[in-house]
């Protein structure tokens, strides 16, 4: 049990009594009240819990919070700009009305933003590879793909 300091969405947070094996997911959800990162399987199968560590997508259910100390952590709550302007990926998700139940979509969006940060023009195969860890039980894949392509276009237009 120890006290840890985490950098979440640009803010330092002190969390007391964190067992060394406690997954980042439960620190975010139960201790910090950041419930946008969701629990689906607890074994890195579904991607509902995807967050960024230093910009890389990771499954928060399978990363101990202690291992995230010292890294920049970004969750879905930290994706929009400070003034509330949505990230291009979030915006594309709205435009394509991607969500059905919506439960997987935080994780989908985190995987998609990480993809577009390193690949400004992903092919369908790139999308398949980057998004393979995110299950959508409602089957919104057709719209996820379209939304990623249109977010990519929007982001390229800004450069």
């Amino acid at each position: 049990m120890s006290k840890i300091e985490l950098n979440v969405n640009g803010q330092w947070q002190t969390v007391d009594d964190v067992p060394p094996d406690m997954p980042l997911l439960w620190v975010l959800r139960d201790r910090l009240g950041l419930t946008g990162t969701r629990f689906g399987c607890g074994m890195a199968q579904c991607g509902a819990c995807t967050v960024h560590l230093e910009g890389n997508p990771v499954r928060a259910c399978s990363v101990p919070a202690s291992a995230a100390v010292g890294s920049r952590i970004t969750t879905i709550e930290g994706l929009a700009a400070a003034d509330g302007t949505l990230h291009a990926v979030q915006q594309a998700w709205l435009e394509h009305d991607v969500a059905q139940c919506g439960y997987c979509q935080s994780g989908q969006i985190m995987s998609a933003t990480a993809l577009l940060a390193r690949n400004s023009k992903p092919s369908d195969a790139d999308i398949d590879a980057a998004m393979a860890g995110n299950i959508c039980r409602c089957g919104t894949y057709v719209r996820i793909r379209k939304a990623i392509h249109s977010a990519a276009t929007a982001l390229r237009a800004r450069i």
């Binding site: 419930t35 946008g36 629990f39 879905i76 709550e77 929009a80 979030q90 435009e95 979509q105």
Partner: peptide, 21 residues
């Protein structure tokens, strides 16, 4: 017509029973 609570869904706002505290 786009879904009523689309913005909540893409922003990770508390939405589901499991988000209730």
């Amino acid at each position: 017509v786009r879904a009523t609570d689309g913005r909540d869904l893409v922003s990770g706002r508390p939405t589901y029973a499991s988000d209730v505290r």
